[in-house]
Design a protein around this nucleic acid. Structure first.
Lengths: 225, 225
DNA sequence: AAGCAAATTTAAGCTACATTTAAGGTAACG
DNA sequence: CGTTACCTTAAATGTAGCTTAAATTTGCTT
């Protein structure tokens, strides 16, 4: 789960970041409205946490522009103002929920879960393709021949592939979605993980394969013997 | 057992807090309706004690909102009003019991026990997995090779694990459920207790093991030799 | 109120593993 | 046939988790 956190108070941002990461979210933090908009345009987030009062651009304007641009990522509005007026204005503009500061971390997490639940309700806990299945809860990849627990990065990669079987996924998509924009990691890491995953698929005797398309990316395909 | 106490009179709150803690409950205290709602949204409580007359938000409204949000934690209403009208209104909105001030501490404790009993009636007193069993009454962890009495924290941790065998429980979940939100305890304590419990499992020759999933949490698994 | 025992937390050094880098190899494509 | 993109492995790195022991707190007993 990848979240965008737009909050200009550095201390609060840092604290929230830590809490969210601890709860197994990948978090990109931005500190003003312009960045929030730029980053938010990327569809690679499962949710956006948006402070209303930010430099450069107001949170509500960010939200409005995002929606106008056709971005449908769920948005949770964060505001110091308890005024109902602002809340309603936010919901009108396409926010999914709001939270007034100060709030308990528990409520924040609950609301994020609720906000992203709609989407995950439609995504099964067990992904399958051919004789291969991936358990989203235990991070286990298995076939009839056994199962292997995957590391975080491996899991996210195979998850992306199994979510779109037969669909070509670019190396950049992997990088953006798993490592985030600001990463300094080399493109290399994607190749390395593809290699690791292939090895595990072979070990498990899976009848699927990851095909490379030169200069573009990878496709997961069921292989018919 | 973790309780949420929502009572705005500081003196009374302090006194109740002390009594409850003495009776082996973990207690989070809040002093107004808004906080009661925020904290109550967290499903990690075994019961909520809710005063009706509170600043910011009325107890009944808190209760109503909680139920609407799908929170089913048992609620005991506390009220200075002896009027039947309010009582009935509370029970309608989903309260499990009520108590009018002033009350004896004995009665309060009895009603809390009664309120939380329904839930515990369905949970067996003896949890087992593999050759390992945990007695919820005596806090004893045992196998055929012997038994060891656990401390409170150790008990709560192994209880959470044995309640969901094979299910991954995040470090945060342990912290929230056992230590509560406001704790300043380091994440470290979880590791320490996991270590203690593992040592005791080994001493007892248990055929279960606690597996760690890096960056996420722990899973209790029956080990097949 | 003092002192003791048990439970809990902190702190520190250590270990193991996920992740990344780097480097040498192989296959596709012109 | 040479260039480029990709593959694979091994080694380096960094960090999460493990384990103790010591410090602190709590609760009980006298």
């Amino acid at each position: 789960m990848r979240l965008l956190l737009a909050e200009d108070e550095r201390e609060l941002s840092k604290a929230l970041c830590a809490i969210l990461k601890h709860n197994n979210y990948s978090v990109d933090a931005v500190y003003d409205g312009q960045d929030a908009l730029d980053y938010g345009m990327d569809e690679n987030y499962d949710g956006i946490i948006l402070d209303l009062m930010m430099p450069k651009m107001n949170g509500l304007d960010v939200l409005e522009k995002l929606r106008k641009a056709g971005v449908s990522t769920p948005v949770l509005i964060l505001t110091a103002k308890a005024e109902t007026e602002d809340k309603i204005l936010g919901l009108d503009k396409g926010a999914d929920d709001y939270l007034t500061k100060p709030f308990s971390t528990g409520e924040l997490l609950a609301r994020i879960r609720a906000m992203t639940r709609r989407k995950s309700e439609f995504t099964p806990n067990l992904l399958t393709l051919g004789n291969l299945s991936l358990n989203r809860e235990t991070f286990e990849l298995s076939t009839d021949q056994g199962s292997i627990r995957l590391g975080n990065k491996e899991f996210q990669m195979i998850e992306m592939l199994m979510d779109n079987p037969g669909r070509l996924i670019s190396t950049e998509q992997f990088m953006e979605r798993i490592w985030g924009y600001e990463t300094e990691a080399e493109i290399n890491v994607v190749w390395v993980y593809i290699s690791y995953i292939r090895k595990k698929l072979a070990t498990l005797g899976a009848n699927v394969e990851i095909k490379a398309t030169r200069g573009v990316g990878y496709t997961l395909e069921e292989v018919k013997c």
